[in-house]
């Protein structure tokens, strides 16, 4: 029960912080540390648009009903940004996912992005396609995309396991731009050995704020920072209280 109350308090507090930061951003824009992976990704995205090439986005296997679905939603925010930019390009982005519900959401996201870019007639549902349902099947279904000559950038953001290493190796072999982020620790460790600019921890959830510069995403990133500092404070203070016998 106590845990439920604490959870409820954290959720309400975070919601209030979100509103507060959203209001404060109207006067003072937040400043975040530069993340080279996102800078390189933006550059690769612009280059692919200029060259008329395709961008491949993989959303992972996060089921929307599970905890891993949060990584999927974060990748959907990035998909929205990429789809808006590439809507009128020569080639639409290639979107893959390892979950049926995630594919439906990706199709919806792309359609609204194309609508926002006044290019709804260019949208095709099959630009978002399902890969395999198991991790290895999903990775093997993506491997042909890494060998395509007209695909210049590969972005893997979502719930991936260690099998993401196979995809990174394929990207390296074909000299394609590659950036990946996962909420899985073993995937992060594997990506560190391969990706030129690896992303750790919650940097996956910062994609929306860094790429699309959406005010809501920036506000939520600020909320994350505040909560992180509060958590650090709690981690330092609670052993002291335990030591003192408070609880």
């Amino acid at each position: 029960m106590i845990l439920n109350l604490i959870s409820l308090f954290i959720i309400v507090f975070a919601a209030l912080l979100l509103f507060t930061f959203r209001l404060l951003q109207r006067k003072h824009a937040p400043r975040f540390r530069p993340i080279p992976a996102f800078q390189q990704f933006q550059r690769a995205l612009n280059l692919s648009i200029e060259e008329g090439k395709q961008v491949h986005l993989s959303l992972g296997r996060g089921h929307p009903l599970m905890l891993q679905g949060a990584a999927g939603f974060a990748s959907l925010g990035m998909l929205r940004h990429v789809a808006e930019l590439t809507a009128a390009g020569d080639r639409p982005p290639l979107v893959t996912a390892g979950e049926g519900a995630l594919i439906l959401l990706a199709q919806d996201t792309m359609q609204s992005a194309y609508r926002a870019a006044m290019a709804e007639e260019l949208y095709h549902p099959l630009t978002a396609r399902l890969g395999g349902l198991s991790p290895m099947a999903y990775a093997s279904s993506l491997l042909p995309a890494f060998g395509e000559k007209h695909t210049s950038a590969h972005v893997l953001m979502g719930n991936f396991g260690a099998e993401v290493l196979l995809l990174g190796e394929a990207a390296q072999r074909n000299h394609a731009f590659f950036v990946a982020a996962s909420d899985d620790l073993s995937a992060q460790a594997a990506l560190f050995t391969l990706a030129p600019h690896p992303l750790f921890g919650e940097e996956l959830f910062a994609a929306g704020a860094y790429l699309s510069r959406d005010p809501a995403h920036q506000a939520s990133l600020s909320v994350q920072d505040v909560l992180r500092w509060l958590l650090i404070l709690a981690l330092l203070v609670s052993p002291l209280f335990k030591f003192l016998g408070v609880f």
Binding site: E51, K149, Q172, R173, N174, H175
Partner: peptide, 14 residues
């Protein structure tokens, strides 16, 4: 006039 991009061959040395 787009410069012909040299097709970099797949990494064979690895």
């Amino acid at each position: 006039q787009p410069r012909p991009r040299q097709a970099t061959p797949a990494q064979k040395s690895g």
